[in-house]
Design a protein around this nucleic acid. Sequence first.
DNA 1: AGTATTCTTGTTACCGGTATCCTAATGGCT
DNA 2: AGCCATTAGGATACCGGTAACAAGAATACT
Lengths: 332, 332
Amino acid sequence: MAEVAALSGVTKMTVSRVLRHPEKVNLETRKRVTEAMAKLGYVANRLAGSLNTGTSGLVAAIVPTLRHSLFADTLEGLSDVISEAGLGLFISSSAYRSDVEESQIRSILERRPDALVLTGLTHTKAARDLLRGFGIPVVETWETDDDPVDMAVGYSNREAAHAMTVELIRSGYRRIAFVNGPMEANERARHRAEGYLAAMKEAGLSAPPIHVVHHEAVIQPETGAKALRALRQQADIDAVFFTSDVFAVGAILASRELGIDVPNQLGIAGFHDLEVGRVVSPTLTTVQVPTLEMGRKAGHMILARLSGKRSTRPRQDLGFSIISRESTRRNH
Amino acid sequence: MAEVAALSGVTKMTVSRVLRHPEKVNLETRKRVTEAMAKLGYVANRLAGSLNTGTSGLVAAIVPTLRHSLFADTLEGLSDVISEAGLGLFISSSAYRSDVEESQIRSILERRPDALVLTGLTHTKAARDLLRGFGIPVVETWETDDDPVDMAVGYSNREAAHAMTVELIRSGYRRIAFVNGPMEANERARHRAEGYLAAMKEAGLSAPPIHVVHHEAVIQPETGAKALRALRQQADIDAVFFTSDVFAVGAILASRELGIDVPNQLGIAGFHDLEVGRVVSPTLTTVQVPTLEMGRKAGHMILARLSGKRSTRPRQDLGFSIISRESTRRNH
DNA sequence: AGTATTCTTGTTACCGGTATCCTAATGGCT
DNA sequence: AGCCATTAGGATACCGGTAACAAGAATACT
């Protein structure tokens, strides 16, 4: 910057103004400075600026993984909104582990982001304290069933699982099994289990033991196929509600091989409304969740807060919808 | 930091040492300082440190979109590798537009990343000059058919399309249509077209006009279905090679509705080996590309370069594989 | 004409760390 | 005892910008 200043015969301050408040600089001077910048190939250093202004123009986000289109979609929504406002996006993936998340939060805060977006409401106590003490806007996504540290945007996993269970019962299924992710590390999974169990209880049905897919299991169809085979050995069931479309699709493929008639003999439902569920035959009944929209909304909440509005409602429920397709449409 | 120093009775410099070179500080002093940091809830400011050291600990990446699992996978691979080395990941998505990419590069460089990862080899001239002038390691991913600015990791789109076309010919198809993304903004698409045309020519076959899917078209199955209907009206074809599995799957579903027998009456092939292709019936013949591995490799190349090794081979071809499945397996 | 206002640019200090050099103390060795 | 190497921590300057205030010139207004 000093070089640019020297070359255009002004001080650094004027160069800085050209970049930050161009309207405050005489047109002619501005042109001279701009030319000097071009000639020298000058690229401003935001780190230095940030140090002074205390605002880094950075939004940080932590997702469990990028390999799942769900979270990548949410990030795309977030990115769309914040990049329009000139903010950048910093990303970490926590591999679904709260302890990893905590250390990532710590290292992220050292970069002084203007806001932070997290996935889920489950964090270590240390992480929550750290965030609260830091005072930047924090948006937690994908869940609204618990209290957020600051703000939350998402849908109720409990209600979604409840609604899908009710839908299965309405379709005539009674012995409905439930296949879930590990519940200890993940409030989303726990809330879904609660919703499922509540719906079964309300209908006076007894729930078979919940089948838990191990944490280490890869999210791929074969895992769902295995779960289906295991379930059929241990209980007499007429429907399975998977909390991931990927698993549900695997179960549909396995049923075909096993000669099980879906949906008449066995109903199958998934969660998330991924493309695979629309493509498999029979097409998959599922719960559609607002993946992209959660990211966009999180972005808007952050921008509102950064522009000084204190009024943002701290919890935004974007809802979900039950998509009923062939895999639960009995015709007998 | 000054507060921490005061509370523990040392200077800022010693506090800085505790964080950066703890072995140079007396164990007892170190303990006192650490306690003071904990008591005050001190979080170091990396922006300030970076200003001095000239290294931000940041790797920036630009992808066309996050909504496509392909690029998200590559980012996950990159993130895995670099976060292990203590580097952070900064992301932008360019919506497949070089001009957008150029302005993103400009704004990214202001944050002084230690390295930059791009998708593809197509960039504006200004962008290339800027990058070359800046001197940080740059890795371009997903293509190796052209010259990189600095380093590249990927596979040859030309060869991949060539190999798939040969495979279709080997399977007995002759009137093979090709459905591609827009070629003017995307070298990947152009190279695939070249590979396809070359293979057709080598086999002495005439290629029907290439069907181009519009830039604005959403990457969803219905777009592929439309392409198939259009193609059948304008030419007599016995196979279609789509450069995206998503489109290919749409064509398979459309064929079912239209009563076309895949693979006997019409062969269908895709590109990328997405999950949808494994789940649809008939299962989809496709080209598998090293999505995750490209990201990991890019990370390793960056780390090698940052640790001073000048020797890294600038172009790494990770190859691809042809996955032959039911959609092209004729049985007559 | 004299004063107020606006426009334009400069001066100064500081953001929060860290590299570098330097001093003082401690201990080992001849 | 004398000297050198090592360890521990301080002093200083600077990284590359920007806020805040100041000051001179041009313009407006009474």
